[in-house]
Nucleic acid binder design. Structure first.
Length: 222
DNA sequence: CCTCCCTTTCCTGTTT
DNA sequence: TAAACAGGAAAGGGAG
């Protein structure tokens, strides 16, 4: 087996991710999906902006609501700000979805005071983020992931891998598998065609398109 | 212990 | 020629 020299990948990842502690500042590899939690993870008032965004994605997924239903930019705030919003604030920010969000965050605040470690965000997807969700989250965090994957057609959900091996290494890191390669990652991607999580894009290398069963990637409506 | 689901690994062949 | 793409086959492994 021949692999691209790891030094190349290391430098790609290092330049992309820097040396920040992945558990301290809006990690892409989400703490809620890994086995170890730290106390603040379950306390909404201590969430970072990224964690608020992560929570939004989760609630939308759980309720099978498309991400285009609410303007995510209205929730560009940290956990402290989120927790201070009134019911009316939620309705103003998210319309009919507002009451679902308000209910959810209220429950989280409540349950936190009784079972500090468990939160409902964690319960939903204990097996961890699936590959397509991992890819989606990279795409939705351009400021944290410059140059890994890029939208080709934002509205249609078409995207292209720019640093395929770097993404594979990152995926491997999340799965604690240092031997992950794009070759193997792409096989998993191809299985998504049948499930219509991805649609085939012919003739364009490293290009994929989200399918009807992929949720949470659409641009927010204005 | 078993089953289900989602990969992961490996492979052979094809295409760009 | 190297890198991607195509899928079959089978193993891995976590969750229930």
């Amino acid at each position: 087996m021949s692999l691209t020299p790891s030094t190349t990948l290391d430098s790609q990842l290092t330049s992309t991710w820097g040396h920040t502690n992945p558990y301290s500042d809006g990690p892409l590899v989400m703490p809620g999906y890994t086995s170890r939690l730290w106390p603040h993870d379950s306390q909404p008032q201590f969430w970072s902006k990224h964690q608020v965004w992560e929570w939004l994605q989760q609630v939308m997924d759980i309720h099978q609501i498309d991400a285009s239903s609410i303007p995510f930019q209205n929730f560009d705030m940290d956990g402290h700000q989120l927790c201070s919003l009134s019911y009316q604030d939620f309705i103003h920010a998210a319309g009919s979805v507002g009451h679902i969000l308000f209910h959810n965050i209220t429950e989280l605040k409540w349950s936190e005071s009784k079972r500090p470690i468990r939160s409902q965000v964690k319960k939903h997807n204990p097996r961890g983020t699936h590959l397509w969700e991992f890819i989606r989250d990279i795409l939705l965090n351009p400021e944290r992931n410059p140059g890994l994957i890029k939208w080709e057609d934002r509205a249609e959900g078409v995207f292209r891998f720019l640093k395929s091996e770097a993404v594979a290494q990152l995926w491997g890191k999340k799965k604690n598998n240092s031997s992950m390669t794009y070759e193997k990652l792409s096989r998993a991607m191809r299985y998504y065609y049948k499930r219509e999580i991805l649609e085939r894009v012919d003739g364009r290398r490293l290009v994929y398109k989200f399918g009807r069963n992929a949720r949470g990637w659409r641009e927010s409506e204005k």
